[in-house]
Design a binder for these strands. Sequence first.
DNA 1: GATCTGTCTATTGTAGATAAAAGACAGAAG
DNA 2: CTTCTGTCTTTTATCTACAATAGACAGATC
Lengths: 292, 292
Amino acid sequence: MAKQNTVFKDAFNRCLALLETSSALASEPELGSQLGVSRTTIRAILTRLEEIGLIEWSKRRKVVLRKPVAEDYFPTEETDSLSEIIERSFMRRILAGGAEPGMQINELELAREIGTGTTSVREFLIRFSRFGLIEKRPNSHWVLKGFTPEFALELTEVREMFELRSAAAFAHLPDGHPAWTELETIAELHREILADVDNRYREFSELDERFHLLVHRASRNRFIIDFYDIIAIVFHYHYQWNKTNARQRNARAMEEHLAYIDALKSRDPARIEDACRRHLKSARETLLQSIN
Amino acid sequence: MAKQNTVFKDAFNRCLALLETSSALASEPELGSQLGVSRTTIRAILTRLEEIGLIEWSKRRKVVLRKPVAEDYFPTEETDSLSEIIERSFMRRILAGGAEPGMQINELELAREIGTGTTSVREFLIRFSRFGLIEKRPNSHWVLKGFTPEFALELTEVREMFELRSAAAFAHLPDGHPAWTELETIAELHREILADVDNRYREFSELDERFHLLVHRASRNRFIIDFYDIIAIVFHYHYQWNKTNARQRNARAMEEHLAYIDALKSRDPARIEDACRRHLKSARETLLQSIN
DNA sequence: GATCTGTCTATTGTAGATAAAAGACAGAAG
DNA sequence: CTTCTGTCTTTTATCTACAATAGACAGATC
């Protein structure tokens, strides 16, 4: 295979989802922007829709013949892009598996295990190297530096610098700025989840990312915003494979978020700094505890 | 060609340089660690040395027959690794040439222009993307964000945070730490260059990098240290293609460095912060002036 | 005249192949 | 018994090829 057609399959599935509700299809360019793909892919989707007897299609006339059923969808495993597969597979190995710091990483071996070509693995490792967990020895292997307490401390040190500054900048956003509405939405979601925390505490991880990214964005600094990728990926996989006390941990973090949000809304620098520090401190402790 | 033999050629040249002074060759493993290459490459070098009649070689007996001459060396163009060539070529286009922000970057076109395969260009762009100057549109082109005043401001904002913190950490290095010796060496070099500034001001660029990297290292934080790569590459190419007032600019920076170094030696936090801020402020101004 | 479709071209993402370089191991030499 | 060399295997760096996807343009349709 030269290139997986995951873009097609994923867009096809999303197109079926559209058909579940609406019973008409827009024009090709219109569909293209709805699904975020090119017309070439849209036409491939339409062709397939016709093949499986879901629509009748001739030029601009598109008649929906029936509702999509479960079998029409491509299985979700087939819609993940190769880089997502590699990332998951790799993170599982280094976060979950017993991967010792100093261990060598072998491109060829990784590629064979994941079942892909070496090019994709190489490109992934290069992209991933900016997270500071691996390092390249030129003309030779990569070295795993490991998800160690030092890593966590260095990460949180920078995170705290960046977030304090971003939070301070947040207070200066003009009244009409969309970030204030988004902040309110996020606050509301916190309250909803907290109200039914036993059942919904798992939704926190995603919300956490959304909230902190919003704060970081207020810095208007690409380096600060980009750095949040590292935090996000670490916390993302960390939450996924470390579930001790998750309910309690998340509930506490949500309370802290709400206080932090109130502080932001007050626009009082001292209050903001205090609430932010308080939350960052407990986030750091949580992360560190889980590593040892 | 599958792989350029630049490692061989470069190590070969360095081996000739060794022969200029010493007239004996160590064992294969020993040579390997001296030149930083594997035994495979050492043996290729020895084979070539024998071919061009520079040595007689049989097992552990290596007799040097004559001194190397200029023609023995490989031309320097052939010793640059492909990634260095791509980097230079790319930086020239975006810093020197009239590259507008928002411009599309085409992997294939770049590869054709530089005369390499697309894989290498792709990998370079991925590595380079962490500098915040380009951004990928998946399944489509890269976008040049450009070396704009915003870029410079965002870069210096983070740089100032990091350097202030690193400088503060420097004061806490224990007395015997090698950084203090290195600092003294760097100070001395500053004085030497300043004493003959009209002729030697060009040496500042390298010294500048060496000094600031030393300071950043005191943070003991990989993210802070790695970030210095971005600053270094920007200033490196920037100095190279922007020579207005270079002598005066560099002289001023060196004076500031010396004050900064004195402050570090005093270990007085207030003095350090003051000297550091002073220098960073003028560095930022210099950078910004040159962009418009 | 604006937007759509048919068709064609160019570029990206990925696999596979190959030379260069690293590195492993056994036996030789000190 | 330590370090070296000869030989062999494995891995990396890079090129080329090709399917998937994006994107351009002219003529068709509203």
